[in-house]
Design a protein around this nucleic acid. Structure first.
Lengths: 143, 143
DNA sequence: CATATATGTAACTGAACTTGTTACAATAAA
DNA sequence: TTTATTGTAACAAGTTCAGTTACATATATG
């Protein structure tokens, strides 16, 4: 139940790329050490972020870089990149067509649950990577 | 990934109880036939709905009944009754405290993701069981 | 009161998914 | 050419979900 760590790890990944890509080569290993996971887990995420056009990754002695201004990367972009959520909610298949409830439940719930999913997406869309960057900077400057 | 069928099956269950409890004994078997699943799956859901005060269920030769006006049962009530979602989102534990991102990611994401979860919950709260009942009646009257 | 019928719950299964891991070919900078 | 890194396949352990069997417990009804 719920949304996996893949999503939040992808956000973490983008933040590490932002904070370090001008100073050093940001490799899957380096990111994995910040997240505290295995580099392959990160590489799988990098692949998807790359496919979504959010970063550039090169094989060999390279590293990853953001391919967009963090002001124009929203949490929804990240969510869509790594979580293949056509439907956040699931409805039981093959309910009984002879029952007025079983017959109509799918159509009726679909409408409402899609609305709810859109609410979730709109909320994620309101937060940009840049918002998170600023919040981290604030926290760090308090030291 | 995503929210299980338990939630939508619970909604289905409440609707069957509403539509039939004045005409016949609504047993777990009867509900299971409408949903097209096993009666035990339904009984587990009935248990949780009962615990949440949404229905009354009696052992023996009884059946289930709503214990509230369907106008006052929202989809959020059902969601909370059957899905134990403290956190819809998950964040990787033990990220590196020596990295500015690893150190702050948890606190920062928590705030935003809780906001998003609240958006989802607010949206579910806007739909009542009665709304669904009316929609089913409309669909049925078209025949 | 006896019987028939349901619930409540434990225990188990198979399938699917999540995360982590090893291994290695392909790639590109130095 | 060397070295470091990505991309991906393959596999494993852990978890969750849905379905199923089984049975003790409970309760309307004859």
């Amino acid at each position: 139940m719920g949304i996996t760590t893949k999503f939040t790890t992808a956000i973490h990944t983008l933040l590490v790329i932002y904070f370090f890509s001008d100073k050093k080569r940001v490799t899957s290993n380096f990111i994995a050490e910040s997240v505290n996971t295995n580099p392959v887990v990160i590489r799988r995420i990098l692949s998807q972020l790359k496919k979504a056009g959010l970063i550039t990754v090169l094989s060999g002695k390279n590293g990853s870089k953001l391919s967009k201004d963090p002001n124009f990367i929203t949490l929804l972009d990240v969510f869509k990149a790594v979580e293949s959520v056509d439907n956040l909610f699931n409805i039981h298949e093959n309910s009984n067509p002879l029952c007025p409830v079983g017959k109509n439940i799918h159509d009726i719930l679909d409408v409402h649950l899609k609305t709810t999913q859109r609410c979730l997406e709109n909320s994620l869309e309101e937060v940009t990577l840049n918002d998170l960057i600023e919040e981290i900077n604030e926290k760090e400057n308090l030291l």
